[in-house]
Design a protein around this nucleic acid. Structure first.
Length: 593
RNA sequence: GCGCCCGUAGCUCAGUUGGAUAGAGCAUCGGCCUUCUAAGCCGGUGGCCACAGGUUCGAAUCCUGUCGGGCGCACCA
């Protein structure tokens, strides 16, 4: 299998740097790894490289001169790869390949299919990706949905880049929040039976608490009214959290998000791992006793102050369990721990970084990805949500209204750390204004084209079957160059933990496809099929974008079976890449819309 | 008060390990369907990249300060 074109260019430049270094044309010393990218303007060639400018100061020559030397050597050494190499001020190398080389991209996609875009950069690295981790004290809301979509996409993305990824949901099924849930449900339970009740001040006010109370009333009758309220609250907490966790699992599953591991906080306590974690750190003087409480000396690792892990009343803080949990993750042999958190938890980062360091791992082995809030809009009208009153729009409601695909795509349209406006009306709209339909439609449109081709007895060829020279015009090359970028988008996106880059890429690819499709006929019109005479491989290439109907007719006249075949082959690979990208995002690729 | 994030077209946002003339969608204005899905395409309008300094061949991008917005600063989670 051939190396990706861009990597061939990188290698060529690297070899050239070595040559000019060895021959003394330039005294470079350590050869840098050159950065090659597709420039934004077509007149700057297929690839551009800025290595001459970065080297200028070390070789004590002007960037232009360095670029000149490199250009000359590159051209001499790789005449079959490069058609021309320009030097542009202030020192760019603008590289144009012999166009035929671009067709290799299509062969690569043909060979790799659904694997096109995968790489091995993450090979051998094991990542545990923790996300959602919502308390089982209420239904998932929209914010959780964003975290879920992001986590799922990131897991797929990292796996695509060769990492071994395990998705994990940490269940906070111990501690104060659960206790509050029990108290809240028990209060509603008493109300249900017409008894007096004391609702906790900071309890859960959502309407779903009533439903849970009714459920408890159904299974336990009035038996919880007598006896200690403590016990009754524990029963309520237990039963309510089980129901809620079940709902959470169901919602996530419906949303298309799954986990390898559901990790229960309770099991850490049950196995004594929370205490043993503290004991271990105490022996190493990273946990100390003071004022009747136990403190984690996180300030040793740069946190602004030490943190309580065991309260004066003998109970553990959330942090203590979380430390035990992260110790466990490290003990399971993961190299990198990625946690996706709501941005309001950012203040918690230093103490978790301190935690992994306390266990002898580098700060970098923990990577926290923060997710900002989601505002739901209906058109321009903002939907107000009040956490205090327990009024928020649930993930389930959103998915029921707009569907999983649209919801996921919208959640992945923005960088994680920026606030997201989610317009429910737009997400439902079936038009090009709606980005998810726009991209999916590109896929469905091609599927439809291939169906029609099939019905008319035109087979869907592979790149090896067609006259490839028919794909060498700028129109087709532009599409092919975009396809060539895909593996680099995946790689960059994975290394930066930024799935939104894939979303943007897909919109760009879909836009190019739609434009191409609109402009160029692929199948011959029904009545003249097979009768078209040979001629120029297309009509005059209009530059102002307007296609007069007379021109269209001439386009059809010149549509030969060979050209149809070549275009079908090209579009088949466009469809493959669209599908691969959508798959990374967890969004379906419909055959029909 | 201290810390973190953010400030790019009228709106929502890409672009931030420094690169060439800063991009896209929406909105707005004007065009394109007897043909493979118009759930589509083409064109116009629109910018002191919050502000002020600094670093250098080069800054939306890095540093410092100011202003504006969000979020944190528990023996809660």
């Amino acid at each position: 299998m051939k190396a990706l074109l861009q990597n061939q260019v990188v290698r060529a430049i690297t070899e050239t740097l070595e040559i000019v270094n060895n021959t003394g044309q330039l005294s470079i010393g350590t050869i840098p790894s050159p950065i090659v990218e597709q420039p934004k303007r077509p007149e700057w060639g297929d690839f551009s490289c800025n290595v001459a400018m970065t080297l200028a100061s070390t070789v004590r020559q002007s960037p232009l001169k360095v670029a000149g030397v490199l250009a000359e050597n590159l051209g001499e050494k790789f005449p079959t790869l490069f058609k021309r190499i320009d030097v542009a001020p202030p020192g760019f190398l603008n590289i144009t390949l012999h166009p035929m080389h671009w067709l290799e991209v299509l062969e690569t996609i043909q060979d790799e299919g659904a694997s096109y875009g995968t790489s091995q950069i993450g090979k051998g690295k094991r990542i545990v990706l923790e996300f959602v981790s919502a308390n089982p004290t209420g239904p998932l809301h929209v914010g959780h949905g964003r975290g879920a979509a992001l986590g799922q996409a990131m897991a797929t993305l990292l796996a695509t880049a060769g990492f071994s990824v395990s998705r994990e949901f940490y269940i906070n099924d111990a501690g104060r929040q659960l206790q509050l849930l029990g108290q809240s449900v028990y209060a509603r339970y008493r109300e249900y039976w017409g008894k007096d009740s004391s609702f906790p001040d900071d309890g859960y006010h959502g309407g779903y608490i009533h439903t849970l109370a009714e459920s408890v009333a159904h299974t336990h009758g009035e038996t919880l009214l007598e006896g200690s309220s403590n016990e009754a609250e524990t029963v309520c907490a237990q039963e309510a959290s089980e129901i809620l966790l079940h709902d959470i699992q169901e919602d996530l599953s419906t949303f298309g998000v799954s986990f390898e591991t559901w990790f229960s906080e309770k099991t850490l306590h049950a196995k004594g791992l929370v205490q043993s974690t503290l004991d271990e750190l105490q022996e190493r003087e990273l946990v100390k006793e003071e004022d009747g409480a136990w403190w984690f000396c996180s300030s040793v690792f740069g946190d602004e102050k030490d943190r309580v892990v065991k309260k004066r009343d003998g109970t553990y803080t959330y942090l203590a369990a979380d430390m035990a949990y992260h110790r466990d993750k490290l003990a399971r042999g993961f190299n990198t721990l990625i946690n996706i958190w709501g941005a309001d938890h950012h203040g918690y980062i230093p103490r978790m970084e301190a935690t992994v360091q306390a266990f002898g791992h580098s700060k970098e082995s923990l990577r926290i990805v923060l997710v900002q809030m989601v505002s739901l809009l209906r058109g321009t009208q903002k939907i107000e949500m009040s956490k205090r009153a327990g009024e928020f729009v649930t993930l389930r409601e959103v998915v029921e209204e707009v569907g999983s695909d649209a919801a996921k795509f919208f959640f992945l349209m923005r960088r994680a750390d920026t606030h997201l406006d989610f317009d429910l009306e737009l997400a439902k709209q079936q038009s090009s204004d709606n980005p998810v339909y726009y991209v999916q439609y590109a896929h469905a449109r091609l599927a439809s084209l291939f169906r029609v081709a099939h019905e008319r007895g035109v087979c869907l060829p592979t790149i090896q079957d067609v006259d490839q020279t028919l794909l060498l015009r700028e129109e087709e090359l532009s599409l092919i160059k975009t396809l060539a970028q895909y593996p680099f988008v995946i790689e960059g996106s994975a290394l930066a933990f930024e799935p939104h880059r894939v979303t943007f890429y897909l919109q760009e690819l879909a836009a190019k496809l739609h434009a191409y499709y609109n402009k160029h006929r692929v199948l011959p019109p029904v009545d003249s099929a097979g009768k078209s005479k040979d001629g120029l491989p297309d009509g005059p290439l209009e530059t102002n974008g307007k296609v007069a109907s007379s021109e269209r007719a001439s386009v059809h006249d010149s549509l030969t079976p060979a050209l149809t075949a070549a275009r079908l082959a090209l579009l088949r690979y466009v469809q493959t890449v669209l599908r691969n990208g959508l798959t990374v995002l967890g969004v379906s690729s419909p055959e029909k819309m």
